[in-house]
Design a binder for these strands. Sequence first.
DNA 1: ATGTCTTTGTGAACGCGTGCACAAAGATGG
DNA 2: CCATCTTTGTGCACGCGTTCACAAAGACAT
Lengths: 236, 236
Amino acid sequence: MATGRTHRPATRGRGIPEATVARLPLYLRALTALSERSVPTVSSEELAAAAGVNSAKLRKDFSYLGSYGTRGVGYDVEYLVYQISRELGLTQDWPVVIVGIGNLGAALANYGGFASRGFRVAALLDADAGLAGRLVAGLPVRHIDELEAIVADNQVSIGVIATPAGAAQEVTDRLVAAGVTSILNFAPTVLSVPDGVDVRKVDLSIELQILAFHEQRKAGEERQDPDGDVPAVMPA
Amino acid sequence: MATGRTHRPATRGRGIPEATVARLPLYLRALTALSERSVPTVSSEELAAAAGVNSAKLRKDFSYLGSYGTRGVGYDVEYLVYQISRELGLTQDWPVVIVGIGNLGAALANYGGFASRGFRVAALLDADAGLAGRLVAGLPVRHIDELEAIVADNQVSIGVIATPAGAAQEVTDRLVAAGVTSILNFAPTVLSVPDGVDVRKVDLSIELQILAFHEQRKAGEERQDPDGDVPAVMPA
DNA sequence: ATGTCTTTGTGAACGCGTGCACAAAGATGG
DNA sequence: CCATCTTTGTGCACGCGTTCACAAAGACAT
Ligand SMILES: NC(=O)c1ccc[n+]([C@@H]2O[C@H](COP(=O)([O-])OP(=O)(O)OC[C@H]3O[C@@H](n4cnc5c(N)ncnc54)[C@H](O)[C@@H]3O)[C@@H](O)[C@H]2O)c1
Ligand SMILES: NC(=O)c1ccc[n+]([C@@H]2O[C@H](COP(=O)([O-])OP(=O)(O)OC[C@H]3O[C@@H](n4cnc5c(N)ncnc54)[C@H](O)[C@@H]3O)[C@@H](O)[C@H]2O)c1
């Protein structure tokens, strides 16, 4: 019965479709660039080009937020930056913990784009006692046993997992038990979490395999017909 | 205009839907784990649970590859591993170059899961002359000027970009000009590429923002009604 | 004030992806 | 050889997401 209620019907509530939510950060990035160049307004056409999407889609996306454009003119850049930021919840601070400070975890800790948008690294955690106390990106690595206390003290609701795959589920369970309700998983494993906890995954290996599929397909079509279907009428 | 023809109409040709292609690596991973435990066959129900998907979806996905199951029994693990590997193009070697050997690029170079599935790091490239020759994950960092020669000599068709955002488009153009037709982009920028070149992006910042949106939404609903719509009849 | 011109906001059509539910296939046991 | 039981493969319906195309809105000039 648990699988029955799994996929929530998009983002009903006030009703911003999931696909739209996924594009808002893209728009925000493009708008921020315009804002830095002191551009006052932008049309859906221009902004769509900058974000790499269809302009009708962009307008429909914005229509879910309300009517923030002016016909004949376009959108006010600053106002839109604010509205999208607010909608995404970026006007508040989000404390984040990173678990697993190896190659990847250290790179993530050093990532500047992290802090720039309301995400603050509250702590770096690792099971390796030898790492404890070492400074990474200016922060001391704390032992994993401190997880529960750190999450509680800092009201952390977002956790990033960069441990080996074998440890990911265990770390997840501890994070969730401690109160974390959003997880970004870099380990190549399927995580089980209770209802109400969101998991998003970043999987390099999967991305490469998808590219390989299309690559193989291109190589195949190259010496066959470009439609890739039936060989039809071979020339001679 | 590269942005015009961006989304191809799924994977028509012989016709494996794009959504299915994206799940095949997931199945492959689960199957590989079963294979290592010498499990001979697996039912769609079991495998679906391991991959975290609906069993009907899994069966439909496999049906696009052909009828590889046996009714009343399930799927032969080894056979399926081979079929999916072949379909994804993992039976051949894919030389890959990584451009930008900073925090992230170095972590990627050290990533074990890279080589495990037919992806071979052909070279590490960076614009910083000071890095040239330094060993990262056992490979010497080469100067970016060698890009064209390396791509040609090794027949590289997949490039990974881990440079700062400002350099990503320029690197992309050089990669494409040199013959690369698939790009995995970690830099937070929209890349323009000509038709026939695939780009996939991994964007930590976007993932976090999506999580923040849902997190904010959860926090809001908590103290309102759980349906999130009209406040209806507030209990006094 | 009126007309023109630009650009938004959205109705409507369409296609893809998902999941239910079941008939057909085939294994297994007697 | 037949009955039973398990599990696949898929027809079908439904909902989400995308795109087209256009009416309405408003800026701006005269
Ligand atoms: N390096 C990459 O570029 C890359 C890319 C994609 C995916 N990944 C995945 O990210 C994860 C980390 O990769 P990495 O290269 O940094 O590995 P790594 O071995 O360098 O680092 C893993 C770290 O996790 C710590 N750890 C292990 N068990 C732990 C536990 N139970 N609790 C807390 N910390 C624990 C280890 O002490 C170590 O410091 C792996 O799952 C890997 O598959 C890495
Ligand atoms: N570090 C992370 O966890 C992380 C996460 C998400 C995204 N990113 C993105 O990945 C990219 C790299 O991040 P990083 O933390 O490794 O940065 P970094 O500054 O540590 O490394 C960037 C490297 O790229 C090299 N470089 C610069 N211009 C180049 C060019 N034209 N050609 C070749 N090489 C060039 C630099 O010499 C440097 O070695 C950035 O775009 C960043 O936004 C990083």
